[in-house]
Amino acid sequence: MPKARETVLEIDLNALEHNYRYLRSKVDQSVKFMAVVKAYGYGSDVVGIAKKLVDLGADYLAVAYTSEGITLRKAGIELPILVLHPQSYNFEDLIENCLEPSLYSEYVLREFIATAEKLKQKNYPVHLKFNTGLNRLGFSETETDMVRDYLKGTESIKAATFFSHLAASEDWKEREFTLMQIHTFKRIALKLFDELGYRPLLHICNTSGLINYPEAAFDMVRSGIGLYGFGNEALEDSKLKPIGTLKTIISQIHKIEKGETVGYNRAFKAMKPTKTATLPIGHADGINRQYGNGRAGVIVNGSYAPIIGNVCMDMLMIDITGIDCEEGDEVIIFGGPQHATKFAEKGNTISYELITGISQRVKRVIVEN
Rank of each mutant, 00 (worst) to 15 (best):
N301A: 00
I332F: 00
V262M: 01
M271A: 15
H254Y: 15
I318N: 08
L316W: 09
E257M: 12
P337T: 04
G328P: 05
N265M: 14
S303A: 13
G263K: 13
A270I: 07
G336S: 13
M313F: 07
K258L: 11
G263P: 10
C325H: 10
A284W: 11
L279D: 00
N265H: 14
G286A: 00
M317Y: 14
T261P: 08
A277Q: 06
K272Y: 14
I333S: 01
I308A: 10
Y291A: 02
R289P: 01
D319K: 08
P337I: 02
G328N: 04
P337C: 03
N301C: 03
P280S: 05
I281E: 09
R266N: 15
I323V: 04
T261A: 10
I299F: 09
K258D: 12
F334R: 06
E330K: 06
G322K: 00
E327D: 03
M271H: 13
G292D: 11
I332R: 06
I332C: 03
A277C: 07
I307G: 06
R266S: 15
V311P: 09
K275N: 11
D314R: 10
K272P: 08
C312Y: 05
N310H: 03
T278Y: 13
N265I: 12
S303C: 05
K275V: 14
I253M: 00
L316P: 09
V300R: 02
G294N: 04
G292A: 07
V331W: 03
E326D: 10
M271S: 15
G294M: 02
G322I: 02
I308E: 04
F334P: 04
F334L: 08
A277E: 03
D314G: 05
H254W: 12
P273D: 15
G328E: 02
Y304M: 03
G286W: 07
G294E: 10
I332H: 01
V262P: 07
T321H: 07
H254R: 15
Y291R: 04
I332Q: 00
A305D: 04
V331N: 03
A267N: 13
A270H: 11
A277F: 08
